[in-house]
Simulated scan of single mutants.
Amino acid sequence: MTKPMLLSDFERLPPARHPVTRAVALDGLSGSIDAVAEHGPDSHRFLRFQWYAAALSAYGGRARTIVVEHDSDPVIALPMVRFGPGPARLAAVPGCYWPFRSFPASQAADAPAFAALLSALAGEVNALRIGPVYDGDTSLTPLLQAARAGGWAVLGRFVADSYLLDMAAAQEEGTWPRNSTLRKNRFHEKHLGEHGSLDWQFLSRPDWEAGGFDALATVEENSWIAARTDGSDAKFTQSGHGAFWRAAAIDPVLAGMMWAALLRVEGTPAAFSFDINAGVLKYAIANSYDPAFAKHSPGKLLYYRNLVRALDDGMRTVDWGAGDSGYKRVIGAAKGPAIRDWLLLRPGLPAMLGRALRQVWERSGQAPASAAEVTPADT
């Protein structure tokens, strides 16, 4: 007769443990920001700790960060700074407008993670501004979905259209760059050389500490920005946004993503094109030139060289962002996702007020460009 087995004869196993998702709000910028960014899509990996630290240093503000962890691993990091009257409890995601303002989220972040983020956010603010940011942003889109499902008011306003150049596809089709364009470029380059010796350079991580930003600022100081405006929109001058980019480049990872093409004429900086390289995607952040050489299109000559180099380096797409669509369409760029500003207002009275003011917020944005305004210039 078989002896029956007693319960004590079985090995006791620990109870099954379910992964835990939790969110916590912390003072300052969290060290988890980099860990989250490194597990996000290539397009968002510039959203690192020093990116936000540079913004606080250049533009002011005190940060708090909501970190969402899944099974102890950080999967979302949302930095924010307060603005407006204290009792209003308004906050915004800090950063730089170029290429956009968003926050890092790991590709492992799921719907419960974004729900946890919103729950913590409701305890921190009445309203959060995120943007300008692209439609379809990989961090923002699931947050908007969770916010709408959770009773938050979600208000968007149009800022601009973006423009994208799929240069790899165009080259495979044999349409980029056009032979006619290359002939024109050789003609202009020949006559530009009459002003002095031409030095075409590419700047990357080692060059920023060696005066790279100063060379770009020199071009801006001689450009139309200085001549026609107060110069506050210049990217690299001391009176513009130079403090931000210099501070961001302290992070060697960010510095390694920064890239510039620079033309010197007789040793003097004459034109530049500055980008952030994110995997196979290039964000075209800024370009400028000295109008003393405008007749020979130094900016155009430079960015064509820059894009050909990008192709050689394995890059496929250029995101030209917003702004003058004429020359971008001549290059071959097509309209991409819209860029918008968003307000998220927590459930309750803030959401009620937000819905009542929806049209005011929408009208405070820009009107989409008409077809006539985006017709490519003659080539």
Rank of each mutant, 00 (worst) to 15 (best):
residue 5 M to H: 05
residue 19 P to S: 07
residue 27 D to G: 13
residue 30 S to N: 00
residue 45 R to M: 01
residue 53 A to E: 14
residue 55 A to G: 13
residue 57 S to I: 05
residue 60 G to H: 11
residue 66 I to F: 01
residue 68 V to R: 02
residue 74 P to G: 03
residue 86 G to L: 11
residue 91 A to Q: 05
residue 93 V to L: 11
residue 94 P to E: 06
residue 104 P to D: 00
residue 118 L to C: 12
residue 118 L to A: 12
residue 121 L to K: 00
residue 123 G to V: 04
residue 124 E to M: 00
residue 134 Y to L: 15
residue 138 T to E: 13
residue 139 S to W: 03
residue 145 Q to W: 10
residue 147 A to H: 09
residue 151 G to Q: 07
residue 151 G to H: 11
residue 163 Y to I: 12
residue 163 Y to N: 10
residue 164 L to S: 08
residue 167 M to K: 08
residue 168 A to K: 04
residue 169 A to I: 11
residue 172 E to T: 14
residue 173 E to H: 15
residue 175 T to E: 13
residue 185 N to D: 14
residue 189 E to R: 10
residue 189 E to D: 13
residue 191 H to T: 12
residue 192 L to P: 04
residue 199 D to Q: 09
residue 200 W to G: 03
residue 207 D to F: 15
residue 231 G to F: 07
residue 237 T to C: 12
residue 242 G to K: 11
residue 245 W to A: 05
residue 253 V to W: 10
residue 260 A to R: 12
residue 261 A to R: 00
residue 262 L to G: 08
residue 283 Y to T: 00
residue 285 I to L: 09
residue 289 Y to F: 11
residue 295 K to I: 07
residue 298 P to C: 02
residue 303 Y to D: 07
residue 303 Y to E: 07
residue 308 V to S: 14
residue 318 V to K: 05
residue 326 G to R: 02
residue 327 Y to N: 10
residue 328 K to F: 10
residue 338 A to T: 10
residue 347 P to N: 12
residue 353 L to W: 03
residue 356 A to M: 15
residue 362 E to S: 12
residue 363 R to E: 15
residue 375 T to G: 09
residue 376 P to N: 12
residue 378 D to W: 14
